[in-house]
Design a protein around this nucleic acid. Structure first.
Lengths: 104, 104
DNA sequence: CTTATAGTTCGATATATATCGAACAATTAG
DNA sequence: CTAATTGTTCGATATATATCGAACTATAAG
């Protein structure tokens, strides 16, 4: 296991990839939870799903620039990259978070 | 061929379905073109793709509430449902159209 | 060193969906 | 009626991706 992750720069984020990453029920729920919690590790957001599934979804969100993962010992702490997303796609995350928090 | 289409009401639009419908390169291009043109029929936006592919993409956009299709004789005129989308998901289409018109 | 915990990676399977040709349907023009 | 135009429907294929168990890696604790 590498001890860091690489995260894409805001300017290389692709709108279609970002939208596809968000357009999944499990990941949209992850995003909402992360938005409420500010920061969370993988296990906190597991619910009843297997770790391998969650790891996959975190990977998709990370590689498409939606979240940042900081490794802290054995924990991987995730935060939404709201500032970067706002810089690259102004208004997008606000609209999605507002819509999804008022019931999909 | 039926002589009308049914279009979903704004309040039944599903965020995930809407995002998935938009998160496709062909459909995002269709959306941008429609936004510029205001209204267009299928053939106008064909490009070099087969009609059956385009018909599929229009169907996805229509069934998920992104566009409205009005049948006018042999032509099917499509328009973006910007007002309804704004009502249901405020700011979403503005963000997407702004982002995609400044280069994906 | 041993055990526990957090998360990843791998491999298999299932499902969704994009693509496109061919046949079809509906409307209009001649 | 016949031909042309517009778009849909059907069926086949290919690709993407979600899901999950099992093995593995990394760090921390005893």
């Amino acid at each position: 296991m590498a001890n860091t992750y690489t995260h894409p720069d805001p300017q290389e984020l692709d709108l279609i990839s970002v939208l596809r990453a968000i357009a999944d029920p499990v990941r949209l729920e992850l995003i909402q939870h992360l938005h409420q919690l500010g920061e969370a590790n993988c296990s906190t957001l597991l619910g009843s799903r297997p770790k391998s599934s969650m790891s996959h979804h975190f990977q998709v969100l990370r590689e498409n620039g939606i979240l940042h993962t900081r490794i802290d010992g054995v924990n991987h702490r995730n935060t939404l990259r709201l500032n970067e997303l706002e810089e690259r796609f102004p208004g997008l995350m606000n609209a999605i978070l507002a819509a999804s928090s008022r019931g999909s």
